[in-house]
Simulated scan of single mutants.
Amino acid sequence: MAAYLSRDTPHGVTPEQVWAANGSNEVMLQLLQAFGGPGRVALSFAPTYSMYPEYARDSVTEWVVGHRESDFALDLDHAHDLVKEKQPSVVLLPSPNNPTGTALPLDAVTTLCEAAAGNEQSGIVVVDEAYGEFRRAGTPSALELLPRHRNLVVSRTMSKAFALAGARVGYLAAAPEICDAIRVVRLPYHLSAVTQATALAALRHAPELLGKVDELRAERDRTVDWLRGRGLTVADTDANFALFGTFPDRHAVWQGLLDRGVLIRETGPDGWLRVSIGTREEMQAFQEALTQVMEEQS
């Protein structure tokens, strides 16, 4: 995994900087068990991944949420001030964001790492790159900042781009001291031999397993252009989905698509819907169905 991650940073990643677990959900829970807990705070910025508050609850960590701007970017002044005010032990930042697909610029990561490092509890900043392989060309990974920020954690999963959700393989890159801290809280035998063998086999065949990523990126960009051409607002996305809207009654649109055999996600802020990117044929079916639904509701 260290060699695989090293492709996304000129500085490289060593094995001592990598920790793997039973899915990225266990990675997140272990981080909160190690660095959160009673009397400590975990912080994120909404809209954000819906499971983060569950991880905070499970680790008895206070959950605090700030808010993003209308285009789902971070207001860095607001984010910096909130980190200084709340003194979080853990800051959780999905990039690309779930559910919006918005990627964080590196200066935002640096700002929050520096703010969290100055806290009384010297908080860690977790950049959750679950959809990182789908980034647009020129969008950097937070892995590039690991040598600069000792409190930075970058997490990944094999569930998305590798299409291995059933294998349950999540992993992170961080300073060796952070990996050592996680060893204190992990359960014995938490990562089975079968899981490890599956992950190693997937990494050996990464080019083949990731072969569809470029196609999905291209189809995503075509879908975004098409949606905007229909007069809809679409969040800038570096993931394998697109959040679009807004609709006075998003459930009616969702239901209209479902009635035509197209299932998308009714998620995100009010008025928005999210479509996962599939094959050209699947996206054509989505476009035809959405056109019909919008014409009926116009």
Rank of each mutant, 00 (worst) to 15 (best):
D221S: 07
L152M: 06
M283K: 00
R186M: 07
A56K: 08
P105T: 11
G268T: 06
I182E: 04
F286Y: 13
G170T: 10
L43Q: 10
A242H: 09
F244D: 06
S95R: 09
Y52Q: 05
A79T: 08
L106Q: 10
V253F: 13
F241E: 07
A199P: 02
F244Y: 12
V293F: 00
A201I: 00
G261F: 01
E69T: 15
A202F: 09
A161C: 09
P248D: 13
A167I: 01
A2E: 14
T110H: 14
T139H: 05
V169F: 14
L227R: 09
Q297H: 13
D238F: 00
L92M: 15
L31A: 09
A173Y: 06
L74A: 04
V153I: 12
A56Y: 05
V127Y: 00
Q297T: 15
F45T: 05
G271W: 04
R228G: 07
M51H: 12
R204E: 13
T139R: 11
A206H: 07
A117S: 11
F241R: 12
L112V: 00
E114K: 06
T102G: 00
L29C: 01
R150L: 08
S155K: 03
L273N: 09
C113Y: 10
D81I: 04
K86N: 06
W254A: 05
E281G: 12
L82W: 08
R222E: 11
E208K: 10
L5K: 06
S298V: 10
A142M: 03
L258Y: 14
R186I: 11
E215Q: 12
P147N: 08
R150A: 15
T111L: 01
T9H: 02
G256M: 07
S159H: 13
N151V: 02
L227I: 00
G12Q: 02
M1Q: 15
